[in-house]
Amino acid sequence: MFRLLARSIRLYLSMVAFSIRAQLEYRYAFVMNILGWAMNYAGTAVTMWVLLYSFQAIQGWTYWELLFLFALSVLSWGLCIIFFFHFRSLDQYILNGTFDRFLVRPIHPFLHFMASKFDVGAFGHLLFSIIAFILAYHKLALSWTLLRWLIFFAALLGGVLIQGGILIFISALAFWTTRSESFYWVIMFPAANLLNYPLSIYPKGFQWFITFILPYAFINYLPALFLLGKADPTYSAVLGLFSLPVGMVFFTICLSLWLKGLNHYQSTGS
């Protein structure tokens, strides 16, 4: 069991290394992809600043607190896409028949597919979010104990699992519908933008939905409540401690749906 795991991880890492080298083949695109995303987020951060300049605070959140919220969401998303971003286009792999090859190799198809791509665009997300995080950390004069840091990393990991779970969920639909990428633009993309602001500005029903159904709130809002010592009119900050378990459960559900879909897989003709 342990040997199998060790082998899988080793194999994963070398496949990832190959994937990075493949993307380095296109050096210009490689650099632009990273810079593009970093610039994109910086643009959003500036917009926020302009907004806050006239309003001072949104629902009691100052600019640096909002930036913290934003950085946390981008950071976990950045880590997530390293592993899972290409899942959104599983439908393309299925339609043009390239998915077949994941089924004729002595590796589990899920691991194989996961390892097949390592999105360097992630570095752009990480570049921005780490700088933004450091800035916010200093401006808010936070000085965390080890326990706080652990809570932070657990929340980060939970966020990766939640968003990874959603990407896997979306890709699983491709096994039945042979179309999945459109779901990404419907579910994931708007949600990512909504996460930039405190949950409390949204209608109650929606808050409830993204806390208990699609657990987006556990990615950044609830952990930020706890870590920044803020209060929400409806939700207790203690919920912020549960990101990791929520992420694990949610991810497991999505993964099992994916595996179920795999059995349903109908290859394309010829």
Partner: peptide, 19 residues
């Protein structure tokens, strides 16, 4: 079945590990 963007030899090396 090979890795599209990589030199051919790399695909063989990777398959060596996979199998």
């Amino acid at each position: 079945q090979l890795w599209w963007d990589l030199p051919t030899l790399d695909s063989f090396e990777l398959l060596k590990q996979v199998y």
